[in-house]
Design a protein around this nucleic acid. Structure first.
Length: 315
DNA sequence: CGATTTTGACCCGCGC
DNA sequence: GCGCGGGTCAAAATCG
């Protein structure tokens, strides 16, 4: 993605040149915005040295903002390359270990660790040492939370993450009246991933899905495989849409865009998806959204654009 | 009939 | 040692 693309498509500030200057804009204490107000109130007849000086200042501001945008886009490209590098580094099919998973030493089935799937048997052996340099970051990725908003009337605990799950238990926990559902990946025992799904205490329309472990296989689900209300595919959920991620930032582990657990746990699928136009567009939108939420940036950009309009009018 | 879900029972860690 | 609570098992039920 080049800079021009970024600049031309992503910054939807709703600035319409046909519209008159916004007078009821929120109070901004940015000096740039103050300059716009001064400039926009100048009458065409005001052609003194003061006006020339003002125009020059706005031009300089415009140039400065253009440079800022260039820097922002360059930073974006750098971050994107780093993300791609990270994805490719984690493309190894070796499943990562589950955190501190304690299997019963002698369970009711009398089994020992010999019954553990291969991915778990390696847990305490060399694998742990092999990944020691990156141990901390990987372990943080082992348990992740996804917040999905659903209908309050929807009683199903479904989080659309693209993987197929098999429910193996349900419990009502002490701190939450809503039942907690326990799922295993349908590829178990070869895939050790589990997830717990429960409605949020604060907001019943929000489902909190806690993932443990990482999938060692790509997403099995295809769109056409889930047609109808087949109960056996009820957990074969397709495509966690970014907007379904809980946007509230008050939570301790709100996954946003690139740290979204699905992307981390399914690095293979993610690394393929990152090159799709949809993902690129999503990244650009996220970037634009972050920028436009910054009042200083918005004010400065508005000043630059207004200055350009003013500049054109004076020509 | 096989795959999946449901749900009560059981296991086990932890705090007291 | 005991009770509590979260997590898991497994038989029965359900579904297509």
């Amino acid at each position: 993605m080049d800079h021009s693309t970024c600049l031309s498509t992503s910054l939807d500030l709703n600035l319409n040149p046909l519209l008159p200057p916004i007078d009821d804009a929120p109070v901004l204490h940015s000096p740039s915005y103050a300059q716009v107000q001064v400039g926009s109130q100048l009458s065409p007849q005001g052609t003194g040295p003061q006006l020339v000086e003002e125009v020059n200042r706005v031009r300089a501001e415009n140039i400065r903002l253009t440079e800022m945008l260039t820097v922002v886009c360059e930073n974006y490209n750098v971050l994107r390359r780093q993300l791609e590098d990270y994805m490719s580094c984690n493309r190894s099919p070796t499943p990562c270990n589950e955190i501190a998973k304690k299997r019963k030493a002698g369970g009711s089935n009398g089994s020992s660790n010999n019954n553990l799937p291969l991915s778990e048997k390696s847990e305490s052996s060399s694998t742990e040492e092999d990944f020691k340099p990156r141990e901390e970051s990987i372990f943080k990725a082992k348990i992740s939370r996804v917040y999905a908003r659903t209908d309050a009337s929807d009683t199903t605990l479904i989080v659309k993450d693209g993987y197929q799950w098999r429910k193996y238990g349900q419990k009502v926990t002490k701190d939450n009246p809503s039942p907690r559902a326990y799922f295993k990946c349908s590829f178990a025992p070869s895939c050790p991933v589990k997830k717990k799904v429960q409605r949020s205490v604060e907001d019943q329309t929000v489902i909190v899905a806690t993932y443990e472990g990482e999938h060692n296989h790509p997403q099995p689900c295809q769109q056409e495989s889930t047609s109808g209300s087949n109960s056996r595919s009820r957990n074969m959920n397709i495509g966690l849409i970014p907007c379904s991620v809980y946007p509230n930032s008050s939570g301790p582990a709100v996954p946003l865009d690139l740290t979204e657990p699905k992307l981390i746990s399914a690095t293979v699928a993610a690394s393929q998806r990152i090159n799709t136009p949809e993902f690129q567009k999503f990244l650009v939108e996220q970037m634009a959204s972050s920028l436009t939420k910054d009042p200083n940036f918005t004010a400065a950009l508005a000043a630059a654009i207004s200055g350009r309009f003013l500049n054109q009018n004076l020509k």
